[in-house]
């Protein structure tokens, strides 16, 4: 992880420090335009090497939280620590996967995937090699020279994921990555994502409004309440990841957790 060498000494090997938090959110409050209260003194820890989901109804500030962690938005007050070091803007230890993919329409899949490396100033040969590797990882080999408009929604998001993986950040920040993808593609993508991440040993912060998706993919779920966003509760689903995806979806613990969360959240709908 050459990228993380300039981090503080609290980190040995990023992604491998079990028990430690790779990202810490301390007392973060966010107002938009001075009067819309999006987040209210949120304290959160994201365990290294794990998948944490921010879940909540629309308007609970989950995307705001994610963009603050990414350094794309500034909190009104509060601090963000990544690998023990305070951050105030985007950094190489975090990579973002966008809800609407944010692919460059004029660039090929290969250039899109390697775009983070291009901005970093890597040589063309180097970044194309890394790009091709991650294109293969997400299952898009053969599409290197295609343009985004020639791909389906699911494939476009795979490009977005490969682009985030290519910069080899410790933390992946995913903002409702599957919301613009149809249901079948979405399930397959969730399975592939879990498979891929178990090999890559990344810490992931995942935003979704789908309870099933949150329970299916997460090690830890943070429930946010709406207006202003506060932490409602934190849940660690007790699901055996060893069994097949189809068995998980029929697993009793899985179904119970989904039900518990639904009961918790439904009161915000009235």
């Amino acid at each position: 992880m050459s990228l993380a060498t300039d981090m503080t000494d609290t980190v040995k090997t990023p992604g491998a420090i079990d028990g430690g938090n790779v990202v810490e959110v301390r007392n973060v409050t966010k107002f938009y335009d001075g009067d819309i209260h999006a987040l209210d003194s949120v304290d959160l820890g994201f365990p290294a090497g794990q998948m944490t989901t921010l879940l909540g109804p629309s308007g609970c500030g989950k995307t705001t939280m994610l963009k603050i962690i990414a350094g794309l938005l500034e909190p009104t007050s509060g601090e963000i620590f990544v690998n023990g070091k305070q951050v105030t803007g985007p950094g190489p230890e975090r990579a973002f996967v966008f809800q609407d993919f944010a692919l460059l329409p004029w660039a090929t899949v290969l250039r899109n995937v390697a775009f983070g490396l291009e901005l970093r100033g890597d040589s063309k040969a180097e970044r194309e090699e890394i790009g091709r590797h991650y294109i293969a990882e997400v299952g898009l080999s053969g599409f290197e020279q295609k343009y985004p408009h020639e791909l389906s929604g699911g494939m476009r998001q795979r490009v977005g994921l490969a682009r985030a993986l290519a910069v080899n950040a410790d933390v992946l920040l995913m903002d409702e990555p599957f919301s613009a993808v149809d249901e079948q593609t979405r399930r397959k993508f969730q399975e592939d994502l879990l498979h891929l991440l178990s090999a890559e040993k990344k810490s992931v912060i995942f935003v979704t409004h789908s309870i099933e998706e949150a329970v299916y993919v997460s090690d830890q779920i943070v429930l946010l309440s709406p207006r202003p966003g506060r932490i409602h509760s934190t849940i660690r689903p007790d699901i055996d990841r060893g069994i097949s995806p189809d068995d998980i979806r029929r697993d009793k613990n899985y179904l119970d957790t989904v039900e518990t969360i639904w009961q918790d959240l439904r009161k915000y709908l009235d």
């Binding site: 944010a102 460059l104 901005l119 910069v167």
Partner: peptide, 15 residues
């Protein structure tokens, strides 16, 4: 210019 793409560029520390 698309604010999404600009944000994407910022997230990869583009100058």
């Amino acid at each position: 210019a698309s604010p999404n793409l600009i944000q994407m560029c910022a997230s990869f520390q583009g100058t």
